[in-house]
Amino acid sequence: MDKILLKNLAFYGYHGVLPEENVLGQKFFVDIELFLDLCKAGISDDVHETVNYADVYQMVKNVVENKRFKLIEALAEAIANLILNKFSRVQEVIVQIRKPEAPVNGIFDYFGLTIKRTRKVKAYLSLGSNLGDKKANIDQAVELLRNHEHINVTKVSSYYETEPVGYTEQDWFLNIAVELETSLAPYSLLKYCNFIEKVLKRERVIKWGPRIIDVDILLYGDFRSEDELLTIPHPRMMERAFVMVPLYEIAPELEINKRNIKEIVESLTGEEVRKVDL
């Protein structure tokens, strides 16, 4: 992921185990590293597509100068949690705190620590194939998902045979749904899904036509997007039985756009979807 750096932020705070540290106070230096996808900000040149540095600085300043902790471990944890809770675009944060005037007899530059905290987001994907060995294509795509260090595949649905939609002069599809937890940002996850399609030699020739593999992001936590790169929730997903039926199997309590998934599945008609044992 891309990274935003805030280095050597200097504050005066009252943190420490010793009583005099809580009364007299001392200097603290803080470094913040924010990991997020900056692709859209780089393209749009819009501050709303990134994290405002001034907002981060003020948040850290308020915590260091206005709160009191015995341990800088607790101070660092408070900073990391606030950043992840406030800035939904941030997927990972590293906080380093240094105490150059720690009340320790000896010669030293500073005492300090570094912590790293990662946001885990639940996402749902739809995978499909109707060329070659369909099951092998899907299984290989799932394995590539499992191989990514920042993706944890938590659930995989059964296989479903589904009739083609749009362009009907083609073989039936084999489809599954996948639940995963990831620290990848939405656009980074999209890039990896596109990479999987490239590895499996997906070719885009006919719209809705035959394809060796489809790897689509359906949902990504509470994230919403409608742009030329990524639309989440996936457009028309609630109209497609080949998407909703496998998804319902692994997430029966899911709500999409304030609608229960069971209600959505029961409302679908006309598209045949058959569960198969392979």
Rank of each mutant, 00 (worst) to 15 (best):
residue 198 K to G: 14
residue 198 K to H: 13
residue 199 V to S: 13
residue 199 V to G: 10
residue 200 L to M: 08
residue 201 K to W: 13
residue 201 K to C: 15
residue 202 R to D: 03
residue 202 R to H: 06
residue 203 E to V: 12
residue 203 E to S: 13
residue 204 R to D: 09
residue 205 V to I: 14
residue 206 I to W: 07
residue 207 K to M: 09
residue 207 K to I: 12
residue 207 K to V: 12
residue 207 K to E: 13
residue 209 G to T: 05
residue 209 G to C: 10
residue 209 G to W: 01
residue 210 P to A: 09
residue 210 P to N: 09
residue 210 P to H: 04
residue 210 P to I: 02
residue 210 P to Y: 01
residue 211 R to A: 04
residue 211 R to M: 03
residue 212 I to L: 11
residue 212 I to R: 13
residue 213 I to R: 03
residue 215 V to S: 00
residue 216 D to K: 08
residue 217 I to D: 03
residue 217 I to R: 05
residue 218 L to M: 07
residue 218 L to V: 00
residue 218 L to I: 02
residue 219 L to N: 00
residue 220 Y to M: 02
residue 221 G to Y: 06
residue 221 G to D: 01
residue 222 D to W: 05
residue 223 F to W: 11
residue 223 F to V: 03
residue 224 R to T: 13
residue 224 R to C: 12
residue 224 R to P: 08
residue 224 R to I: 14
residue 225 S to L: 08
residue 225 S to P: 06
residue 226 E to N: 15
residue 226 E to G: 05
residue 226 E to K: 14
residue 226 E to W: 11
residue 226 E to S: 15
residue 227 D to N: 15
residue 227 D to I: 10
residue 228 E to A: 14
residue 228 E to L: 14
residue 229 L to I: 10
residue 230 L to M: 09
residue 230 L to Y: 01
residue 233 P to V: 01
residue 234 H to Y: 06
residue 235 P to N: 08
residue 235 P to C: 12
residue 236 R to D: 15
residue 236 R to T: 12
residue 237 M to N: 05
residue 238 M to L: 12
residue 238 M to Y: 07
residue 239 E to M: 13
residue 239 E to D: 15
residue 240 R to S: 07
